[in-house]
Design a protein around this nucleic acid. Structure first.
Lengths: 136, 136
DNA sequence: GGGTCATATTGGATTCGATCCAAGTCAAGA
DNA sequence: TCTTGACTTGGATCGAATCCAATATGACCC
């Protein structure tokens, strides 16, 4: 993740303690934390960090393409640091657990021209739902 | 949509003026209204209908499988009466317009067993994003 | 038609996630 | 070290959705 910090610095990001901590919190494999969870973990290291800053930083990381926003339910948005490896999500309908998955095929290619209605289609998002082994 | 009302009556639904109006509002082709929009349209016919009742009724229709909930952005949930014909959604990233689309292939079948992690996968939801002709 | 009762409706309060804002703080270049 | 524009803060605010106790009403029975 220090790569990430370097990359952002190169783009003129001012490196603050708060941003560093948020980036470190996200630097786990396969985490899909809510903003509040990110805030809680960040606050363990930097007790005074505010929610607003966590939201700001997450928003910046998203628009820089370093983190993905995924909305798996009607509750809180989740933040996925695995932005540089295309993947989709498998969500447990009971406990909300999220796993990264890699379906075969290219869903974008599966949308024929006559089903695009003149849209310039740039992105597709696939969410699988089911029951995880723990909840079954 | 009177089919719908009959079907629901058969399941013990008590048929009230409010529920009838909500069902009628949803009885349009390819509409993807928010709860507030449903409420506004319902209120044209039945001025005293409350938001709470609209939410209740929509929730019931969803759990009865007669209407689909689609969350196309981080804003309000949308309600899709086209529940009996499998389809996916194409969303304009600018204006939010939603169109029903029918991609080729079966995304469920595209998720291999070794990518299911023991989940019982029951459903998949595909959202295409792009820019519509009007916004381009 | 009238009575009964379980179910539905109401609107105001409440929750929860997210955003906004003005005031204070601080990283980084000179 | 100084300066400055960008960053952070926490409290207010917003918007969607849910909850609740009081009231109203559809459906069934006679």
């Amino acid at each position: 993740m220090s790569d990430l910090l370097e990359r952002l610095r190169g783009r003129g990001w001012r490196l603050t303690a708060q941003r560093r901590v948020v980036a470190e919190v996200l630097d786990g494999d396969h985490v899909h934390l809510t903003a509040d969870e990110v805030h809680a973990r960040a606050a363990e290291r930097l007790p005074e960090i505010s929610r607003a800053t966590v939201y700001n930083t997450l928003g910046e990381l998203v628009s820089l393409g370093e983190v993905l926003e995924v909305s798996t339910d009607r509750r809180a948005m989740r933040y996925d640091p695995n932005a540089h490896h295309p993947h989709q999500h498998l969500v447990c309908a009971k406990c909300g657990t999220v796993r990264d998955v890699h379906p075969a095929g290219d869903p974008l290619a599966d949308l024929p021209d006559n089903e695009r209605f003149g849209f310039t289609v740039s992105d597709v998002e696939v969410t699988y739902r089911g029951i995880c082994p723990n909840c079954a």
